[in-house]
Simulated scan of single mutants.
Amino acid sequence: MHTTYRILNKAIEGLLVLIFSLLVLDVVWQVVSRYVVGQSSSFTEEFARFSLIWLTVLGAAYINGQKEGHLSMDFLLSKLPVDKQKRRHRIIQVVMAIFALVIMVIGGGNLVYTTLKLGQLSPALLVPLGYVYAIVPICGLMIIFFSVYHIKITFNANNNEY
């Protein structure tokens, strides 16, 4: 499981770098085409929007995989004894996994299915919107995997920290 965790983290990191690079190139092209060429490209705004959607949702899954990456207020949690801290971490991971399952996997899967079934296309790029939204259930599955991994780590931890 640890090998899968490391491979998945590296793959997400690479994908995030690629998407961010494409987003930067897209925005630079949009500025150049608007102010140097004098005519704005029709696809750049839509591509930037879709890139930002993917970047945000993938980034959320990546941060969930990093145990130190969450923005949290853990002052009171850090005052608990170590065994209770581990229990609270497990509860938090279970809640995140349930959220990812219900909202991202089931709800996102329904969104992808509906948009593909209706044949909705993006106006400028003519990409089926179901492909754009497919990142939501995919990242939901990643979040569930990361939550299970972190729960397993807390059960197997022999030291006093998580």
Rank of each mutant, 00 (worst) to 15 (best):
V27C: 01
I53F: 09
H150P: 06
Y62D: 04
V148K: 08
F50G: 06
L8D: 10
L58G: 01
L16G: 11
A97W: 05
I91H: 06
P137G: 05
G14Y: 09
I92T: 15
V31R: 08
P81V: 05
S42I: 10
Q120I: 13
G14D: 07
K10W: 08
V17E: 00
L8S: 14
F20R: 02
T4N: 07
V127F: 10
L22W: 05
L77N: 05
Y5K: 14
N156A: 12
S72P: 00
L76Y: 14
G109I: 13
R34M: 07
Q39K: 13
F146Q: 05
M104F: 14
W29D: 04
V37Q: 06
Q93M: 13
V37W: 10
L15Y: 00
G69F: 13
T154P: 02
I63Y: 08
T56S: 14
V24A: 01
T115A: 03
I103Q: 03
I106D: 06
I12S: 08
I7M: 10
S122L: 06
H89R: 04
W29M: 03
Y162D: 11
V112G: 01
A124Y: 10
V105Y: 08
G109F: 12
V57I: 15
A60L: 13
Y149M: 07
L25S: 08
V17M: 09
V17R: 06
L116N: 08
S122I: 06
N110S: 10
I138Y: 08
S33Y: 03
V32C: 02
I143C: 04
L126I: 06
